[in-house]
Amino acid sequence: MVRSVAMPCLQAVFWDVDGTLADTELTGHRLAYNRAFKDCGLNWIWDESLYTDLLSIPGGRQRMQHYSERLGQSLDADLLDRLRVIKQRHYLDVVASGGVQLRPGVQDLLEELSASGVQQWIVTSSGKASVEALLRSLSTDLRDVFQGMVTADDVERHKPNPDPYLRALEFCGVSSDHALALEDSAAGLQSARSANLRCLITPSAWDHDWQLFSECAQCVVDHLGGEQAPTVHHGPTCAQGRITLEYLQLLLSLPLR
């Protein structure tokens, strides 16, 4: 007698923030960095092209340190801390003004997962203050869908290291076989994969490492839904016209890559 193998039940979804949950980078964080540089007397201006290049460095403090070293300059720890604080304040202002929006299809999926009792956690290389600012800009119903978050303030090693996702798995009490990560970047995918998590990728405009995405992710789509159905670049056909709980559940049955 042949027994069928039960499909793992999806119990937790981990959301990256910048570029996955919302379009925060070019119209949010970039503007805040430039305002902070001006406030601190630095003649740095991160235009869209330069900032897109710098996004390969996860984490704001690391990004500023990397850029200063590229210029042959030295920023001491006190100045980096001051820049980070001022940048966070400007980011709060940008978000409060409505300058940051959720990506297409995100709200529908958040609401469906919440209604179905699936845990949702934020796992990001951004600081807690930035994440909380974004959540405050959402409707009350959406603010309450998350059970918690793991931010840059909670781990010493950020993405692409697995530590953020390992901490999220510890917090939510779910095994990696019953959880899924939603990411937009190569660094995020590497972090999730190193934590033995299956991953859906919605690439940002500045990160199209298609070879890595196709080799390691269970699915690659241009967005989660909305007015137009998502284009599936890699993975199962999206018959529902948007990414749903049923579709995410299907991804759990696919082998780790």
Rank of each mutant, 00 (worst) to 15 (best):
M64W: 06
E69H: 14
C219D: 03
L80W: 12
S139H: 00
E246V: 02
L212Y: 05
D76I: 08
A115P: 06
L166R: 06
Q101I: 04
Q249V: 07
R63I: 06
C199A: 15
L245R: 11
V131A: 09
Q249H: 09
T244H: 01
F171N: 05
A181K: 04
D144W: 00
I86P: 00
C216W: 00
V100G: 06
S137D: 00
R3H: 13
Q249L: 05
H233E: 05
A181D: 12
G148N: 12
A129R: 04
S175V: 12
L50S: 05
V95A: 01
V100R: 01
E111G: 04
L135E: 08
L55E: 03
N43W: 02
G225N: 07
G226T: 14
G225T: 04
N43E: 14
L26P: 00
G105S: 09
C172R: 02
K38F: 11
E227W: 02
A179Y: 06
R61P: 04
P58I: 09
D47S: 09
T27E: 10
L197G: 07
F171V: 10
N34Y: 01
E132F: 00
L245A: 07
C199E: 07
V150Q: 05
R35T: 04
L80Q: 11
P162S: 11
R143G: 02
R167T: 09
V95S: 02
E183S: 12
S194L: 04
L212H: 09
V155L: 01
G127L: 02
W44T: 08
A205R: 13
H29Q: 10
W46D: 01
R198P: 03
S176Q: 10
R136S: 12
E48T: 09
E25S: 01
R143H: 05
L10I: 07
L256N: 11
H66A: 15
L26S: 13
H90M: 12
F14P: 05
L31V: 15
L50P: 01
A36V: 03
V94C: 00
